[in-house]
């Protein structure tokens, strides 16, 4: 399989981010929470490789620990969204015609809601916090999974191998488990990778607004939100988490594209 430079670079970058995030406690050069009032908003130095933030905390350490939080939120939210969305979508595909039309209307309404505003409203009432954040993002994205799963289930269900299974006497559970699910996983994987980048941005946006991960735990969005206020004192510190986040979102998208081309040549246009 021929892989061009883009997907390679994206894969390498994400691998590094994931390794740093998973082993943050070992790999982080310093304590991300240690304040140093004498060394705030510093540019890179031998001491602090990426400089420091407004409280003099080491930016590299905060980026590494922040990546852990950002990834954790995004990935958990996607797992939650697919855990709700996929069974729901398949369920709708196998329900009666009436239920089907009605349910898909509702799903369409959900999909068309402006996510960030809904999130702000929910989090405004429920308060911030890691779990609430994951729950909110998960709920926002499950309709998309439901829609994809519904569409795939409908189209796979019309294939002759499914009719064959029915004529062999297979029940609905068997059909879903053996015929439908395995054949929709590749499309779901593509959907998940695209949604993952949205979830990362969403987490960043909400934390930026102070609705996400509560301080002092760092996350990329929350770092950007805090450091933006000091942009005229020293622009460097806010650039660091911004670039790291941007590159991560871009990489996920590039890999998603690659995955899509690889798994579904029929989707290529």
């Amino acid at each position: 399989m021929h892989v061009t430079a883009g997907p390679w670079a994206a894969a390498v970058y994400l691998t590094v981010v994931v390794i740093l995030a998973v082993f943050a406690d070992i790999l982080s050069p310093r304590d991300p929470l240690a304040i140093d009032p004498n060394n705030i908003l510093a540019s890179p130095s031998a001491e602090n490789l990426l400089g420091t933030d407004e409280l003099g905390r080491d930016l590299l350490a905060r980026i590494i620990h922040g990546g852990r939080v950002s990834l954790e939120v995004a990935v958990s939210a996607i797992v939650l969204a697919s855990a709700i969305g996929i069974p729901l979508g398949i369920g709708i595909a196998f329900s009666g015609r009436r239920v089907e039309t009605f349910a898909m209307r509702v799903i369409d309404v959900f999909v068309s809601l402006p996510e960030i505003f809904v999130a702000i409203v929910i989090l405004g009432f429920a308060g911030g916090g890691l779990t609430t954040l994951i729950g909110t993002i998960g709920i926002l994205f499950f309709p998309q999974f439901a829609r994809v799963a519904y569409g795939m289930a409908r189209s796979i269900r019309a294939r002759e191998h499914v009719l064959c299974a029915v004529s062999l006497g297979a029940g609905t559970a068997w059909i879903i488990r053996k015929e439908i699910l395995p054949n929709m996983m590749s499309v779901i994987a593509v959907q998940a990778s695209f949604t993952l980048s949205f979830a990362m941005l969403m987490e960043a946006g909400l934390s930026f607004l102070g609705l996400g991960v509560p301080p002092p735990t760092p996350s990329w969005g929350q770092m950007i939100g805090g450091l933006k206020n000091y942009i005229f004192i020293n622009a460097w510190p806010v650039v660091v988490p911004s670039v790291v986040l941007f590159a991560a979102v871009l990489s996920v998208n590039v890999l998603g594209d690659w995955l899509q081309d690889r798994l579904n040549p029929e989707l290529r246009r």
Partner: peptide, 24 residues
């Protein structure tokens, strides 16, 4: 069925496919 390409599940071995009836 007619279409030998869509009448077999691409994700399952043919041994599994042939054994489906008795298994079910």
């Amino acid at each position: 069925f007619q279409d030998p390409f869509s009448s077999l599940n691409p994700r399952r071995t043919i041994g599994d496919a042939i054994g489906d009836g008795p298994t079910i």
